[in-house]
């Protein structure tokens, strides 16, 4: 069971007449989302634009986004999973004890009304944000929402999509997947990709002090990571590629200033729906692109002896 049922943002713009934001604050975090894709757009299928769409916001606090929504559901902190599970049961007509519903902070009447509206929609979409995917039980929450969207397809068309953070996070995720099979949390230290988010994620490796060098491109972990991770970055040789001076570049041994991608360096950015966009530079930069710096470093490394020799070409099964 489970899985992921999704679409591209153009489909949302064209067709979505029922939009749920779960644990996100698009009005402040993705300011162009409402106008470009969800609320304001008119289309062949939704000629009256905003009037043809129903918008629901589910969040633990009433953010600016709530004002833009038709319905706001204030879920108690940490109760997302319970609420999702209850709604999954309710769409199938299963009974849920009212006391359990009340614990989520939402009344059963509100849920009944919402579910009825969802089933009547022609094309529903659920966006889920950091609020859902970064809190306690984060993987469970996201999985429950994806399953909920998949199950809604027994009644009408429904899809789900994460609202991802800034920069080209999606692009990194997409490329790691085609090159290694995994999106993040990958170790290549045995010469082939291994995946274990709790063990190989950057923050875990740094906190444990398991790395003797750090190479950081276009990210500023020095601003966001826990103190032991930052202390370790300061201790080992850290190399930063960044157009700007950042928290991380200040504690690094080497900072190479690069041309900002999309402004002065070309490339591809992947949008949150994984649609690739060409980055066309508007300015020239005296600095090299990240790509050029990495390529030149790679060329130098290629002249050094290989530290990993006498390895078989392939192993039949991984341990």
């Amino acid at each position: 069971m489970g899985g992921k049922v999704t679409c591209t943002l153009g489909e949302v713009k064209q067709r979505a007449d029922f939009i749920v934001y779960w644990g996100g604050n698009p009005a402040e975090c993705h300011p162009r989302h409402f106008t470009k894709y969800t609320l304001m757009q008119k289309s062949k299928f939704l000629p009256r634009g905003r009037k043809d769409r129903t918008v629901v916001l589910v969040d633990i606090r009433e953010t600016k986004s709530a004002k833009a929504a038709d319905h706001f559901l204030q879920v108690r902190p940490g109760k997302d999973f319970e609420l999702l599970t209850i709604m999954r049961a309710m769409i199938k007509g299963q009974d849920v004890p009212e006391a359990q519903v009340a614990e989520t902070g939402i009344s059963i009447e509100v849920l009944r009304d919402l579910i009825e509206k969802m089933k009547k929609a022609k094309y529903g979409v659920m966006f889920f944000g950091m609020g859902l995917s970064m809190t306690r039980g984060k993987h469970m929450n996201a999985a429950a929402l994806l399953t909920f969207a998949a199950e809604m397809n027994a009644f009408t068309k429904f899809v789900a999509m994460p609202m991802r953070g800034h920069g080209n996070v999606t692009g990194a995720d997409v490329i790691m997947r085609w090159q290694t099979g995994y999106p993040f949390g990958i170790s290549l230290n045995r010469g082939y990709p291994r995946y274990n988010p709790g063990e190989f994620s950057t923050v875990d490796v740094l906190v444990r002090g398991d790395t003797d060098c750090a190479f950081i491109i276009g990210a500023d972990p020095g601003a966001t990571m826990p103190k032991p991770a930052i202390d370790h970055l300061a201790k080992v040789p850290t190399i930063v590629l960044d157009p700007h001076v950042t928290h991380t570049s200040r504690l690094s041994r080497v900072h190479i200033t690069t041309a900002p991608a999309g402004i002065a360096a070309p490339g591809t950015g992947y949008r949150m729906d994984e649609v690739p966009m060409p980055l066309k530079p508007a300015l020239n930069s005296p600095y090299p692109s990240d790509e050029e710096v990495v390529r030149r470093i790679k060329e130098v490394i290629a002249t050094k002896p290989d530290w990993m020799t006498n390895q078989p070409q392939m192993i039949e099964s991984q341990v």
Binding site: G3, K4, R177, W178, Q179, T180, G181, Y182, P183, L188, R190, G191, Y192, P193, Y195, A302, D306, M308, Q311, P312, Q313, M314, I315, E316, S317, Q318
Partner: peptide, 26 residues
């Protein structure tokens, strides 16, 4: 998308180890 949905398969299958001239893979 299929790769993203099948991490448990990547773990049980054979892996190509990188060399100086060859990239690794699953």
């Amino acid at each position: 998308f299929a790769r993203a949905m099948t991490p448990e398969d990547h773990r049980r299958t054979h892996a190509f180890i990188r060399s100086k001239t060859r990239r690794s893979g699953i």
